[in-house]
Design a protein around this nucleic acid. Sequence first.
DNA 1: CTGAAAGCGCTTACAG
DNA 2: CTGAAAGCGCTTACAG
Lengths: 346, 346
Amino acid sequence: MTLKDIAAEAGVSTMTVSNVINGNTSKVSPQTAARVLEIIRQRNYIPNSSARSLARSNSNIIAIILRGETDENTLQSPYNSALVGTMIQKIQQHNYYTMVNILKSFQDISQSLRTWKVDGAIFLGMFDNEIEMMSGTAQIPMVFTDSYSNIRSLSNVGIDDYKGGRLAAKCLIGHGHRKIAFVGPPVQHAGVVQHRFSGFCDELKANNIAFDANDLFVLESEVKPDTIIDLGCQLAKRRDITAAFATSDQIASYLIQGLRSSGLRLPEDFSIVGFDDLMLCRQITPQLTTISQNLEYKARLAVDILFRRLQASGDSSESQILDVALVERESVSRPRPQAHPDIKHP
Amino acid sequence: MTLKDIAAEAGVSTMTVSNVINGNTSKVSPQTAARVLEIIRQRNYIPNSSARSLARSNSNIIAIILRGETDENTLQSPYNSALVGTMIQKIQQHNYYTMVNILKSFQDISQSLRTWKVDGAIFLGMFDNEIEMMSGTAQIPMVFTDSYSNIRSLSNVGIDDYKGGRLAAKCLIGHGHRKIAFVGPPVQHAGVVQHRFSGFCDELKANNIAFDANDLFVLESEVKPDTIIDLGCQLAKRRDITAAFATSDQIASYLIQGLRSSGLRLPEDFSIVGFDDLMLCRQITPQLTTISQNLEYKARLAVDILFRRLQASGDSSESQILDVALVERESVSRPRPQAHPDIKHP
DNA sequence: CTGAAAGCGCTTACAG
DNA sequence: CTGAAAGCGCTTACAG
């Protein structure tokens, strides 16, 4: 079943059928359009996207590109999978197809964008230097998430990470904490961490608290539970520290496991604030106080911006910074008058 | 940059270049091959997949099809996203591309498979009746997951759900529980739930315990936390019940929240066993005792089977059932001698 | 080992 | 409103 067959059966030219399919109603009489449509339906004809793509040199494909080492499962992160899930649905609503790529090397990526003449791409979790290399590669609209790159031509959707850091510190200080750990991945890995950290420090400063470099805990890897649980145990031994701000809910949850296994009760003995407001926050005990960002909205916005740029055809860019808010649950309380008076090490 | 340009520059025919690209070394002298390859590299030439796809009528695309209502985010489920993540990586390793589709109607799906001449498809979370409708639609290898459909020509990778149900019951009975709730989505929604349930009941029977229909709790929706938390509260009031088997770790985690908010302590006052062994199990308190399945292996196997069938070209099918095991953590203990003696309802 | 020709199934100007 | 022709960039037999 091809265009030609349909045309023959309808007694029209292939280009008339093509016009009907593509909704160029102005170029076809209603009667013939109806007749052609009916035959298409009967024959269950489906156009060949490759042929169309070849002729038009575009594809109706949007690529979602995730950063990921070969050995880890990037979609394991609920943060990424929530974004990707709603992005795919939004893309489908636009009648586009979604190709998902997990990035190993830059070679691969520009290859898959070009070989399929992908119409646009959304990038998740890329480092800024990679973004700068990337943004020249292909002449298609690209939208990044959580980027702090200062390339002007870049479309990005991010959140107010600085404010997030301030809110977290403010919450903990408000409950009486003065000695607060900051736990996150290396700053150079992601601009978001850096900005959360400076917001955090600035809020401390505003309250006349100096941040002690010994209270900064940098994780080698964000995805190794045991490392983080261990860190929780260490934290439990540091009797001076009464609370922690973790740069993700994931980190917070494992920290809690370590803290608890060291005999601390939460939030009585230790307070903790997370980041993201994943479903996880309501699944763990104590339910996690966190900085919330609207992932669904973020995903929708990224797709919206992409399609706006697809239609605009100009070389403009559009970036948006979304707001964040503190969501108070159960993981923060006043510090013990005397920190951790009687810890039992099991 | 096209094949033609490369051919012109190398002073050979397009078909020689084509042979070089496709690794048909037997048809090209090493010298010309090397020369062509060098020009390709210099010019940074990337073949047009649409043209290739049109000429060969295949695509090097594998489709991953997820079942999902329009209003919910299917990839939100860590179960799905873990599978999809490793599948994508495996597919990439085969030098294929991945299209991800979230299913709304059957129309759409057969459309996207056919329009791109997708080479194969993997399906997640489909109901059996849908699978039966599906499996006729396209003449390409398809692999299903967790299907109990008895179509012979079907390739499937599943787990021993029956055994999982038995193990869960056995664990709880072994700790002294006699009155155990079963919590899961409607049985008709998924064969897996049905088989876990019969395994569960059979194990009770083997221990001379009759399962009381009042101890079966069917969730309308698996994805509405509040409903499950409410159910946890109800369960806390049922003083006769001392433990629960939930058909997923997700459900278990929300159940725990409900139980706790009703003043119960876990596992002292109530024991619970989950299913899947997600990362979540180590993030919640108490860490969840669960029936573990190897999702990464499941995903790899599904992709392996798909590619085996792609090569085989015969119309054979291949199915595999993976084993499950009990993983004991902290969420199960002996029941209180007298169930929930002093509950404080906050 | 190499090539000329036809064809895959669409769309794009261009005419009428 | 409709159509004949050329072309998108590959691959597939078929000859040499």
